[in-house]
Simulated scan of single mutants.
Amino acid sequence: MRFQPLSSSRSDPGRDVEAYLAVDLAGGRTTLRRQLVGYPLHVTRGFYLDAGRPDLLTLYLQSASGGLYAGDRLKLDVSVGANAAFHLTAQAATVVHDGRASGSRQRQSLHVAGGAFCAIASDPYVLFPGADLALETMAIVAEDAVLFLADGFAVHDPGHSGSAFAQFSSRQRILRPDGRLLLQDFGRLRGDELRNGSLGPLAAAATILVIAPPDRLPAMAVMELSADRLGCLAGASLAPNGAGLVMRILAPDGGTLARALEAAFHVAGRAALGTELARRRK
């Protein structure tokens, strides 16, 4: 999930920030049962945007700061109760500033109970020169639940310094409630590798996981087309152990990638929930 701590000065060692959200189905719709979200984070009121699924709760996790800074250590725990439907996103892309040898780290812990739908879908991280960002997600997903999870990055050099970001890494582990490991996905890219042509002329990339039973999975060709038609290069494949599917996306810039991630969310949401979802305005 993309959220930002307080701005840091050059001498600031960074901040430890924790957030916890628990949602449950109650009275015919999903409600925020419990939250622990300290400054500078803020959760908006809940939105119910979808006529076809009035039970689906959408929350925006906002921040009062200007991005991720050196030494920041962030943790987000999300618990989605049985048969609940939950979408968590952010108000905008997150800027990642120079890591100054200590980098920025973000961890997510997700629990998705039986019959539930959970989407953690936000805009790509924007890597400034020197940015060093490590993402780690551990998710426990019930057999009949659905998890849509996306993370990605775009490169930006606002001062035209010619410098590259330091490193971007992402690790995702998906387990069943009994502890069985379904899949583990790990990737790392250094800025100098990107400059040397690892992504060709492209400057943004993302990975999408859709963990779902077969009857709630989107068609891989439709997922790929949702990104390709926006100017991206997308490739989807079945995940191991019958977990669902994985899709990689390459894009020319962060704006194009953000639109592709949004389109993929709508495709996956339609397959999982049986209805077209409304646009999430930002």
Rank of each mutant, 00 (worst) to 15 (best):
T137F: 13
D55I: 03
H156T: 12
H87L: 12
L88K: 00
H111F: 15
I120D: 08
S11N: 04
P158G: 10
P213E: 15
L149G: 12
L149R: 05
Q35E: 08
A85S: 12
F265S: 12
A82D: 05
C118F: 09
D144A: 11
H87G: 05
A264L: 06
G231M: 05
L57W: 00
L88E: 02
L135C: 11
I174S: 06
A145L: 07
Q108A: 15
R195F: 07
A134C: 11
P54N: 02
H156R: 07
A272C: 10
G66E: 11
A268R: 09
S163T: 07
A239I: 13
E136P: 05
G81I: 02
G52V: 04
I140D: 12
A19Y: 05
L21H: 01
M138W: 06
Y20L: 09
H266W: 13
A116Y: 01
A251V: 09
P13I: 14
A131W: 00
I120K: 01
A219D: 15
P5S: 15
S237Y: 06
D132T: 01
P5R: 07
F148Y: 10
K282N: 09
A234L: 10
V17M: 13
A64W: 05
T31S: 06
R10I: 13
R216H: 12
G244W: 06
V80N: 02
G99Q: 05
V155W: 13
L56A: 03
A272I: 03
D151V: 07
G179E: 08
S237E: 11
A234G: 11
E143C: 04
G81M: 03
A134N: 08
G152S: 14
D144F: 02
Q172F: 11
L233K: 06
A251W: 05
H97L: 11
A264P: 04
V80D: 04
A119E: 08
S109W: 09
L32A: 03
R2A: 14
